[in-house]
Computed example of a mutant assay.
Amino acid sequence: MSNPENTTVELSCGLPPGPEFSDLATLAEECGYARVWIFGSAPLWEDPFAHLALAASRTSRIGFGTAVSIPSERSEMAMASSIATVARISGGRFRVCFGTGATARRTMGRAPLPLKMVGEYLSAVRGLLEGQTVTIDGSPVRMLHAEGLAAPRPVDAQIWLSAFGPRAIELAGRVADGIIGQHPHPTLPTATMRAGTVLEPGEHRESRRVREAVGPWRAVAYHEAYAIAGARAVDAMPGGARWRAEVERLAPEGERHLLTHQGHVTHLTERDLPLTGFDGGFPSMIGEPDAIRAELTRLAGRGVREVIYTPSGPDVARELTTFAAAAR
């Protein structure tokens, strides 16, 4: 889908749940970001809903979302109650996006969830938030929160789906209000994620600062290649064989999933450092302000509704501030 007449796009940001989240969410609001999407992976980060509640209480305008919530980490009822809590505290500024848990589950040696299971989970959570009685594990269940103990049903929160393949895109059309994906959905609003950094005047795109700023996202390509396709795939990438050899030296075969995604999208391990010169993998926006604005305009013309900027590196506050300024 393309929309040549649409040359604007919402600019949001994506951040991990951790000690700095609420401070960075406050900064993002000051910088004019439309929304903060919080990452979700129990083996890697703290609880996202606790941080969302804190950030929501410290802000007044900016929206929030999860990118992404994983069905296997919370029961349907626990998830509905968590969503209702953040929706109430934020005054309706919250949407939740679900995914199959590709990275989170692989860090525990498990496969991503089947899409069918994700679809059933979303439908149950939506029903609970609407005040319906739904069947879970063979029993009828409903949100029983008394008046004054939770927001009244229906709870005001959109439900989105992380959809990158054709089956997920088709499922989203049936169960979701929008998607996070690489390509615009034919009928639903689409947000897409981009790493990157704004260059200083005269700065080279492969300077040490740039490599440190985007390095955690560049390393993701190696992590995923090894986790999904194995040794041959990662060995074909620049520096991949050496990276793999270090992982396999440090852990026996049954425990390598504990190291593969270490520092995922936030930090670089010693074995990841040489990979920062690989300019590929996760989509990134690296350039001076004019180039950043041009890329945002291009994405809007393709039909992307929202760009989720995912800063990383040693100075996330700098990245948030300069990117927002470049996008204006």
Rank of each mutant, 00 (worst) to 15 (best):
S12Y: 01
G32T: 09
W37T: 04
R61I: 00
L15W: 08
F21D: 01
V68K: 04
F21E: 04
R61T: 06
A53H: 08
A67H: 11
G40D: 12
L11C: 10
A42Y: 10
W37P: 00
S72N: 07
L27N: 04
T7W: 11
G32W: 06
P17E: 11
F39G: 07
L52C: 04
S69A: 15
G65M: 10
E30Y: 00
I38T: 12
V9N: 00
P71K: 08
T7C: 13
R61K: 14
F64T: 02
P16G: 02
G65T: 10
S12G: 13
E10A: 15
A56H: 05
L24S: 04
L54V: 13
G32R: 08
E30R: 01
T26M: 12
G14S: 15
F39I: 06
F39C: 08
V36R: 01
A25G: 12
F21P: 02
C13K: 03
W37G: 00
E10Q: 15
A34T: 14
L27M: 12
S60F: 03
R35Y: 14
L52P: 01
L27P: 00
L27A: 09
A56M: 12
S60E: 13
A56D: 05
T26Y: 07
L44S: 10
L15P: 06
P43I: 04
P71I: 07
A50G: 11
P48A: 14
G63L: 00
A50K: 03
E30W: 01
L27F: 09
G14N: 12
A50C: 12
A34Q: 11
I38A: 13
S57R: 11
G18W: 04
S41E: 12
V68W: 03
T59D: 09
V36E: 03
R58I: 03
F49N: 03
R35W: 13
F39Q: 08
S69N: 13
D23I: 07
F49W: 15
P17S: 10
I70T: 11
T8P: 01
E20C: 13
P71N: 13
A50L: 13
V9L: 07
I62F: 02
W37I: 05
S72A: 14
E29M: 06
I62H: 00
D23W: 11
T59S: 11
T59L: 10
I62E: 00
R61M: 04
C13Q: 07
L54Y: 04
A53S: 15
A25V: 12
W45R: 02
S22N: 08
